[in-house]
Write a protein that binds this DNA or RNA. Sequence first.
DNA 1: CAGTGAGCGAGCTTCCGCTTGACTT
Length: 790
Amino acid sequence: MAKKSETATSPRNLVIVESPAKAKTIEGYLGSDYLVKSSYGHIRDLNKSDLCIDIENGYKPQYTVPPDKKDLVEELRRLSSKAEVVWLASDEDREGEAISWHIFDELNLPVEKTRRIVFHEITKPAILKAIETPRQIDTNLVDAQQARRVLDRLVGYELSPVLWKKVKPSLSAGRVQSVAVRLLVEREREVQNFKSESSFRVVALLEVEQGGKRHIIKAVLPKKLATRAEAEAFLQTCQNASFSIGSIEKKPAKRTPSAPFTTSTLQQEASRKLGYSVSQTMVLAQKLYEAGKITYMRTDSVNLSETALDATKAQIDSQFGPRYHKQRKFANKSKGAQEAHEAIRPTYMENLSAGGDNQEKKLYELIWKRTITSQMADAELEKTVIKINISGTPEQLEAQGEVIIFDGFLRVYSESKDDGDVSIEESEDSGLLPAVESGQPAALQELTATQKFASSPPRYTEASLVKKLEELGIGRPSTYAPTISTIQKRNYVLKEDRDGTKRMYDVLTLKNHQIRDEVKSEITGAEKNKLFPTDIGSVVNDFLTEHFDQILDYHFTAKVEKEFDEIAEGLKNWSMMIDSFYKPFHINVNKTLEESERATGSRLLGTEPVQGRNVYVRIGRYGPLAQIGESEDEDKKFANLRKGMRLETITLEEALDLFKLPRSVGAFEEYEMVIGIGRFGPYIRHNSAFYSLGKEDDPMTITSERSVEIIQNKREADAKKVISKFDTDPVISVLNGRFGPYITKGKDNYKIPKDQDPQVLTLEDCEKIIAAAGTAKPTRKPPRSAAKKK
DNA sequence: CAGTGAGCGAGCTTCCGCTTGACTT
């Protein structure tokens, strides 16, 4: 590839796009008369440190070029002054139009040499066509973006300070993040309040004869039995009944592939199939994009270019045969679809594999499969339903079978479903059923009625939250991942695993005309990588929903989006739209600041049994706490809530238990041993030293003897810790650590080379090792506190 | 690191949506 030098033959045309990877591709299509540069997104914005909106003057925004964009803007200024024509080729959506306008405005480009062009796929014909049909900057669309920008700034920068005063410093609120947190808080409450009702599900195994062979059919009773008594009665009816095949029904069915990936569906599938977090998926996709392997990864379009459709067809024809191909054009549901990009797809369908490491390869494979299958034929199935008669009751059992007649797209890929999307019936294995005849007898092998508990609505994962936000029209492909990380950074939300609890359930079995009764156990409610609202998240949410219900409304974004569309169509003036929002909003902000109580999430749990004083929980300066007595009382007592405890769900008993620690378990070597629970778990304090309890020790019941044992074990381990000390240099010593022997000097640690014996190292040996490591970075302890610092 | 829990209030924090780098090994 011949590299163009811009100084040698200064090109007459400067094209500015948003992304450098895109610039590189396009330059290849356009020949030497064109220089293609990237703006790297927006080149200027409202300054962070201030509101930067002139409320008195039609909400005029004050834009600044951020320091890290100064050089870039200067370069674009220089190149554009030399060029004869500047082509502004940012994306064809609201933000893209604004990016072009900001460049135009900031660089003072003369109108006569400026052209606005757009294309929604990066193919040569699309680019050339765009060049042939330039237009002017659409100022209505730009105004719609300014309205969006100004509204978000006003909401974020007026609401957040209310939280600093009324809840806690450094908190934040915004049109997108606050609704995301609300979804989680409300779902968590649904889960907590869920009363799991149980019913009995009946499954029968029946033996039939067909073609001289015996087959087992699995059949279910379509309706669930509400009570144990009903289940028992049903089994009794079946106890001496005879079974026979009733009707047999066959009907064709089909399955249809999904549309190609958008940002949100890619995040969901990568989460379900590969276990990637939302941000992990984006980082990997970015690498594939930069390497030219896939199209742009931040898109809400399901559209494929003509080029891509042709390439996909060719690939299917050669790999699977023409019968497997079916051209499909997918359209976006939202009518105001801002189709700036294509769907996410491989740039070259003939690349079956791509990506630097294993994770990238897996993601690429997912994208390739999803793209290919979107253009493949339906899978054709035959569904069979066999009804089974029971003598002595009109109830029938039902066996379902499904046979794939033609696999179609299933040959490559089957999409997985979110939690809760799959009903129990669908998830059952339903394969081929034997070719029985109506009236034929069936012999009951076994019939069970199993108690099943209804499950609560599922907690959100990162990806399912993104899905929900997208459904509500909240947030954009470029912000899903950052939003998810913001609400975690603010400590509104925690992503974690939770252990389930044991639950007993009844199983009634009918076999050999005998009914047997069993109690079995199962683990329920275990969660992996789910989002849980924290106490602070819930308190902030309740405060905001109480005082700013308009902003927290799930349809607020949809409502303002409609107005932005009207601005874009020239039907509405943007600053008037903002004004009619801001005036009442601002009054409400001031009213809330003046009138509302501090939000602490305080709850009165009950009274403590000895003196009958009130027991509260609330958020204190250092987090959630329990309190005995009134805040005015001199002798009130406090205790921290422990990890996993929540203001909303803690009981009086659990709160009272918190006050039982620290407690003394007697004396040892003339010092008291005190049991407590600190930041790092349960401990024994003895002679101002701390000893951690083992996992098997319960701080409430641990004995004096066991405590002494723990202290002595720790002392022994510490004694083994020091291998050598040197009198001449007390800073240096050889120690035994978690990862084996090492040398320590002050705060720095050094590895001991494998060929040296740690036991016999002299001070000189140590100094040599340190000097050898000298220029290299010493192995440091992981910076634990770094994340907590502000 | 194993506490604290308010208070005068300095000076700080904060939004959403475009897009990638990089102090070094």
